[in-house]
Design a protein around this nucleic acid. Sequence first.
DNA 1: CAGGCTATGGCACTCAGTACCCTGTGTAAA
DNA 2: TTTACACAGGGTACTGAGTGCCATAGCCTG
Lengths: 260, 260
Amino acid sequence: MTEVRRRRGTGVGKAGAEPVKLPMREALAQAAFELFTERGYEQTTVDDIVARAGVGRRSFFRYFPSKEDAVFPDHDRCLDDMTAFLKANPGDDPVAAVCDAARIVLRMYTANPDFSVQRYRLTREVPGLRTYELSVVRRYERALAGYLRRRFADAPDGSLRAEVIAAAVVAAHNNGLRSWLRSGGEEDPEAEVDRALSFVRDVWADAANGDGVGPSGSGTGVLRKGVGDGADGEVIVMVAPRNAPMWRVIQSIESTLSEN
Amino acid sequence: MTEVRRRRGTGVGKAGAEPVKLPMREALAQAAFELFTERGYEQTTVDDIVARAGVGRRSFFRYFPSKEDAVFPDHDRCLDDMTAFLKANPGDDPVAAVCDAARIVLRMYTANPDFSVQRYRLTREVPGLRTYELSVVRRYERALAGYLRRRFADAPDGSLRAEVIAAAVVAAHNNGLRSWLRSGGEEDPEAEVDRALSFVRDVWADAANGDGVGPSGSGTGVLRKGVGDGADGEVIVMVAPRNAPMWRVIQSIESTLSEN
DNA sequence: CAGGCTATGGCACTCAGTACCCTGTGTAAA
DNA sequence: TTTACACAGGGTACTGAGTGCCATAGCCTG
């Protein structure tokens, strides 16, 4: 039981030992999550949740527009963080910026590993939650795409590039994130996601600085020869095995170019 | 009371005199769509739909698992088409294959321009439908990613590549599609989507044949020099302006490599 | 103390979705 | 022809999410 009995002073005053009186929203989210993991999402009614939280049913829908929202209580805040980050970003390297923005989401997950892992399992087996999660992810993608669209406003196909890159970044992020979630919170999620994101970045980074990715794979090599003032032409001599995977070639070039 | 007859000449039915008796599923979808466009999605109840279709309420849920499904009655079939296409595809150029698969969806939309455009407007202004559409799109993306994952099974980071490319293809497709839908069904959707997809393909195509995209951009050039038996090493000399956009460089290389 | 503001509880209602059971019809076996 | 059975559809009642409306309790201000 979480018992949110409201005595006086709904203020944030924390005394310590006493059963901590959470703000209503937290209490509801916690009660909901407990019940969802105990007996399953669809087996838990909103009445069950408010009963455990010890509050009125109507209050639930004041804090969560729907039952699904109680499963993802932290994404609203996180989206705000991301948009704030993007707004404050200078934007000399837009692709790097959206990659960093994606890492904000990752950090939100890793801040509560147990919660994230259990929620992941829950989400995987409840179709309704999977669908809802899509709309959550979509909001992030829209934020990223919006940012990129503004950056690419004058470029040809700016909107197309923005949307494709945003989708790729989200997909890469989710790939790394899911791998970590599946592992049950072991592994290093940052490294996983960095690798995934650098994959996208190597493909699309315009010409900006890249914080070095690993060494180029065996079999390809790029020899860089600066020519002239460094502001115009440059000759690159590359040796690659025939039929080398394109991404290897790209990675080779990119990692060489980004050594400033 | 089986009254599934519709007023004459509505929709696909030819100008035949007798009121065409549609199969139940079509009748329901049509009645639903009429009501949705007349008074709005949320203002229409399932009872309204079955009343207009002249069938029992229970029958609605036999043919559509949810109310939202009645808005997208053709996607199930389309997904089947796509998976069948992918299964039958040899796979010597996986990226091209998923691009072609995406075009199947486009064709489904363009087969009924008026319906698609109206549905697009409906979907844009009803949040619940937007969310549902995400789950529909996601199914396509999963099909594409699954295909690519199988193709890239032995490649390093095969799963990551598969998911990122699938996401990019879907994003590109949707960009072109939405542009057409926003135009109200004017413009040439095929051209629009082809352009968007070729953008993705130019970035990721492995080494396969590319059915000629436009010429490489000004300022970059690739000189290809075969060395030896053509099965192993090869030297590529590339000249590119410093800070040239990465995708231009890649496009240059790719278009050269793909001249077989 | 009056008035007003906010947060919450309680109640009633709509509507999507489901479980269960009924009926008519067509078809194949007896 | 009769019987058996499968199947498409109809009807009813129920659960549970989400909403609108109003009542109440605490608190702040004048």
